[in-house]
Computed example of a mutant assay.
Amino acid sequence: MATQEERYFGSGRYRVWVYACFRVYNSDYDSFLDWALRFYRFALKDAKIKQALAYRRNWEAFLNAGALYNYATGSGYIDSIKNIVKTYQLYRYDVPVEYWNLLPQVARIMPVKSS
């Protein structure tokens, strides 16, 4: 599938066509879990995301630190996420990672440390 996205080259911003494969999932849970696991695996190798993870207990600081810098498809993407979170008060669902009920196989990949 092709999507039109903004990319920065040199000192300019350009709209380009990006051709990418999209995944299909059996449930929302499967989709969220796959995204989270892929994000954390990638974060282990990416210095900017590692730095952003220091702010993972504060969703807005996390986004401002560049957590999704390589995922955003447009210059307004992060602002759009912030507006959605604020509009629907999604921050109400923030739960410390220690309280997540992770499946055993997920816990092996992303260990949760007690504080």
Rank of each mutant, 00 (worst) to 15 (best):
G10V: 01
Y40W: 03
L37Q: 10
L37D: 02
R23H: 11
R23I: 01
R41C: 05
L33E: 13
N26L: 07
W35Q: 09
F22K: 13
Y29Q: 11
D30N: 11
V24C: 04
Y14T: 04
Y25H: 15
G12C: 06
D28Y: 07
N26H: 03
R23G: 02
N26R: 11
F39M: 07
L37M: 13
D28F: 04
C21H: 05
V16W: 06
R15E: 12
F39D: 04
Y19G: 00
F32H: 10
Y14D: 03
V24H: 08
Y14M: 08
R38L: 14
Y25P: 01
F22G: 06
G12I: 06
L33G: 00
S31Q: 14
D34M: 01
Y14L: 08
R23M: 04
A36E: 02
D30Q: 14
G10D: 11
V16M: 07
Y25V: 00
W35S: 12
G10T: 01
C21D: 13
V16A: 10
C21Q: 13
A36L: 13
L33V: 12
D34A: 14
V24D: 06
R15A: 07
W17G: 01
R41D: 08
D28S: 08
A20R: 14
L33F: 01
Y25N: 07
G12K: 11
D30F: 03
Y40D: 03
C21W: 07
Y14S: 06
C21S: 11
W35L: 12
G12D: 07
A36T: 12
S11T: 12
S11N: 15
C21R: 10
R41P: 00
D34N: 11
F22P: 00
G10I: 00
G10C: 00
V18C: 07
Y25R: 09
A36P: 00
V18R: 14
D34P: 00
R13S: 14
D30H: 08
V18K: 12
V24A: 11
F32P: 00
L37H: 01
F39S: 03
R15T: 15
F22M: 03
F39A: 03
V18A: 10
Y14R: 09
S31G: 02
Y29P: 00
W17C: 05
L37I: 15
A36R: 02
S31C: 14
G10M: 03
R38W: 05
R38G: 15
D30G: 08
F32M: 09
